[in-house]
């Protein structure tokens, strides 16, 4: 043991070897794991507009307040799915459509990744299709107009003097609408609901319809 305290070279070699050991298993091995690079069935690359929106999202640091990962927890598949009120309003049936937990194959076109670590605001991994574009525009211009009590910043610089959205704002919304659509879970949920619409007295059938999509 004495030698690591007296010979710098020995200490250096041991420190580096130990660091490489952990790095190999926790970083290099996953890098070689092909299943982490295989796109999901419905995954498609970003369009130019969406990519521009992603850049705005990165530039404005939206990802410090929003994660993009529905964790593999039952409660998160419910929270970020389609709620009963939403399905009732749209389809006249009370059903909870669970959002599938995030999968590696959905992220293959993300460089850099935007998984995030902090949820000052809600997770955005499944936000695509949740609201219409005008909701997003209003929300970005003045979050407290759509969500009283929100602490999200107002992105006034994404709008011109007359309050019209700039190209950047439009691109950003296009990007938001793309999020979570590399799995067609909303479409599948809607189809299931439509099938169920024949069921009598929809108010009473509080059913969980959708299987977690693969």
């Amino acid at each position: 043991m004495k030698i690591v305290e007296t010979k710098v070279v020995v200490l250096v070699i041991f420190v580096v070897l130990l660091a490489l050991l952990g790095t190999y298993f926790t970083m290099i091995v996953p890098l070689m794991d092909e299943s982490l690079y295989t796109p999901t069935k419905d995954a498609r690359p970003y369009t130019k507009l969406e990519l521009k929106g992603k850049q705005v999202y990165q530039r404005e640091g939206c990802w410090y307040c929003h994660t993009q990962q529905v964790r593999n927890l039952l409660v998160e598949t419910k929270r970020y799915g389609m709620g009963e009120e939403e399905t009732f309003k749209r389809f006249g049936i009370r059903a909870l459509v669970q959002a599938p937990p995030s999968q590696p194959g959905e992220y293959v076109y993300d460089k850099p990744h935007l998984l995030g670590t902090r949820r000052t605001g809600p997770d955005l991994a499944r936000v695509g299709g949740k609201y219409d574009n005008s909701w997003h525009i209003n929300h970005l211009r003045d979050p407290r107009s759509t969500s009283p009590g929100s602490i999200m910043p107002a992105y006034t610089w994404l709008f011109d003097k007359n309050g019209r959205p700039t190209e950047e704002a439009i691109a950003l919304v296009a990007y938001l609408q793309k999020l979570g659509t590399n799995i067609k879970w909303r479409e599948e949920g809607v189809a299931l609901i439509k099938k169920m619409q024949g069921v009598p007295s929809p108010e009473e059938t509080t059913t969980q319809t959708q299987e977690v999509g693969e």
């Binding site: 926790t26 590696p104 076109y109 990744h113």
Partner: peptide, 13 residues
């Protein structure tokens, strides 16, 4: 050189 979930893994490494 990283992308997707591996980028996240490296980021947290």
């Amino acid at each position: 050189v990283y992308s997707g979930v591996n980028d996240a893994n490296v980021n947290w490494w």
